[in-house]
Design a protein around this nucleic acid. Sequence first.
DNA 1: AGCATTGGATACCTTCACTATCTATGTTAG
DNA 2: CTAACATAGATAGTGAAGGTATCCAATGCT
Lengths: 209, 209
Amino acid sequence: MRISELSRHSGVSVTTIKYYLREGLLQPGRQTAATQAEYDDQHLRRLRLIRALTGVRGLSVSTTRDVLDALAEHTGDTHRLLGLALGSLRVDDEPAEETPEAAEVAALVEELGWDVHESAPARAALAETLSSLRSLGVPLDRRTLLPYARLAERTATLDLDQLDGLTDPLEAAERALLLTVLLEPALMALRRMAQENESARRHPSQDLP
Amino acid sequence: MRISELSRHSGVSVTTIKYYLREGLLQPGRQTAATQAEYDDQHLRRLRLIRALTGVRGLSVSTTRDVLDALAEHTGDTHRLLGLALGSLRVDDEPAEETPEAAEVAALVEELGWDVHESAPARAALAETLSSLRSLGVPLDRRTLLPYARLAERTATLDLDQLDGLTDPLEAAERALLLTVLLEPALMALRRMAQENESARRHPSQDLP
DNA sequence: AGCATTGGATACCTTCACTATCTATGTTAG
DNA sequence: CTAACATAGATAGTGAAGGTATCCAATGCT
């Protein structure tokens, strides 16, 4: 497959593919001559993955590269793979501030009995959101958060169930990435629809025409 | 409060505040003279809200303006308010394509018995994600999606519970916005931690040092 | 009186994600 | 065989987004 075919099959313009090659998101094709290279199905698949991560999920090009690099560097352990994929989603230059919210998150994780790495970026993400909400006058205490966490637990069970039966570690890694990252907008969409439904149920007053 | 004080209290630079004023995200202060205006706590609160939406949630400035406008135009009905807040989060220029995924989403909503507006942006968002996942070889059928939807239902119940007891419609509207939009990163962070925990539980092989 | 601060306007800057153009080389149809 | 077209790789340009800097005249504070 030459670059123009790759472009036609993926719907991504040749110039954009070249851009991704430059940025290191896509492996170069197999060179057949000085001005000719051959691409295969792997490239097509990778290209679709890139478009999904940047388009649907809105990841930046550089974050996408980090995620794909982590995916390529997998060493066979699903746990580690997932951690890598998750970890790449946030650049933690600063070594996690010592805010009261961070302590609150730690306490929550403790109470849940979760085995979560100390430097997991999700900890900081949660702490940051809690801090924002508090400054806006909506402090979420552990009691409020706990039932959400229990639901997250069950969501994670569903997620992991879908990785069962995948023996190829590379395939498992990619599936994990897709389910973790790409399912997020889907879950949020479900939540919004459920909110609309629940709101309509509780306040059957006036419905919009 | 003058602009420099507003800046100091919020941690946002004076030039950026001026930028927000230009963009219509912030109401102008009460003019006390040709070159003097007075800002109050409402402005400070609004400014914090803007920073939360753009910073934590990553909304664009123009989307943020739309959301805040919707918030100001509330008419007293919580259901409508929520719909407005939710609806503003996605620009639906195109009138929802007729993809197979859109039909699948409609069937899912039907099966769930949810009362969700036909043109709810969340429908399109879900359909788009499903389409992406399918093109990547991970087709999620209704059977797989259903348990996720049931969990979303229970999450929504928790969300709506927190709006109970708020009598001031403006306050309820703002709370709804915060819980809908700002809680998203928190819920995703919980899910990621839960995934890590569940993965560790299932594959206790080698743990990272 | 005199100097810093303010509101308002305008111009400028940086990053991001592409997009266009150029050149030297290859491929291919007639 | 050659003219027309495609390709790889390099470099430069584009447009939107989100600020930032500068300037100015009017004002407030001391």
